[in-house]
Design a protein around this nucleic acid. Structure first.
Lengths: 178, 178
DNA sequence: CTAGATGCAAACGTTTTGCACCCCG
DNA sequence: CGGGGTGCAAAACGTTTGCATCTAG
């Protein structure tokens, strides 16, 4: 996001917060800046090391609390990519109706928009007797290029197509040991 | 699910497991029966008390491990309803292409199917250069009936439209206490 | 007999919370 | 100076794992 838009976003946040009687502290500003500057999907934990580097360190608790505020303000949206992975997406501010395609080969996330999908979702919702408030379409798919050519413009062997939620094994002491 | 279909499902599970060199133990059978008998969405934790009642108690570890096996066998699917809530849905066996609408008023989950949506998803996926493997459409919506008439056939005040992930407070001892 | 399965409890990663203190307005 | 905000560390949660034991085939 360019400097111009970022300024606008910070202003918007400040206004929304003020309207709720909340302060826009330097921590909240640093966090908001970080989140919208690169407009990447992120996990709350990801933000901690990023904030440690510069001088604007923010505690874990504040990070979680601020994210919640931004979600409640409609500036940030939670998305789910399966496997219990919980990500936040700052891009709904600029493209309010986009959806996500996740490449099962490289776990790359591709954002796309389609007006027909949106119309159809509204239709279905109304037909069921509801008024739509939020819609999320997630498509998991495999990359044709990778399958046919053995390579994929998104493919990075580093994050190779694997299981989310990895745990680091550790020394373990059994209580029932003989 | 009727007794007939349940028998078929158990047979299917037994076959798939056998083909992978896995056993269909009494724990796995009890679990599979429970899951597909009522075809309700569930969290792994939900199953523990249900299994304690009858004689077929199964440990937490086995529950998680078996659920994983069922997912890998394509008999069970994980769905996500937002708020980090991770549910499992046994109904994809009978309606492989259904989607979910969640009522924001009462958190009721309505399953629906729409052939057009499916075609369109395939279109979009191919246009992006991918082959679809799995699709999930989640619509959050508010119930018209409730808004207009103040009542909703799905509305239960008990599970009143609120925040997922509640925590039970507890006694806490502060280290920094004076 | 033996590979696979189970149960237990410990540990993990993530998220929430109580509380003392801080600071902005 | 007061009410909202922060940081810390301690829970709480949901899930995974090592290991000893058990069991189905």
């Amino acid at each position: 996001m360019d400097q111009q838009s970022l300024k606008a976003v910070l202003g918007q946040a400040r206004t929304i917060f003020a309207s709720k009687g909340l302060r826009f502290t330097k921590q909240r500003e640093a966090l908001t800046t970080l989140i919208f500057r690169n407009s990447d999907h992120f996990r709350p934990e990801d933000l901690i090391p990023l904030l440690r580097k510069s001088d604007g360190a923010v505690s874990r608790a504040t990070i979680y609390r601020t994210i919640l505020l931004l979600v409640e303000s409609g500036m940030l949206r939670e998305i789910s990519l399966g496997g219990g992975e919980r990500l936040y997406d700052p891009n709904f501010l600029q493209s309010p109706h986009h959806n996500h395609l996740i490449c099962v080969d490289c776990r790359e996330i591709i954002e796309f928009e389609d007006p027909n999908i949106d119309v159809m979702q509204n239709c279905i919702t109304r037909r069921l007797g509801f008024s739509p408030t939020q819609k999320a379409l997630r498509i998991e798919a495999s990359c044709d290029r990778l399958r046919l050519l053995g390579t994929c413009k998104n493919f990075k062997s580093s994050k190779a197509a694997k299981s989310p939620r990895k745990r680091t094994p550790s020394v373990r002491s059994s209580t029932r040991a003989s």
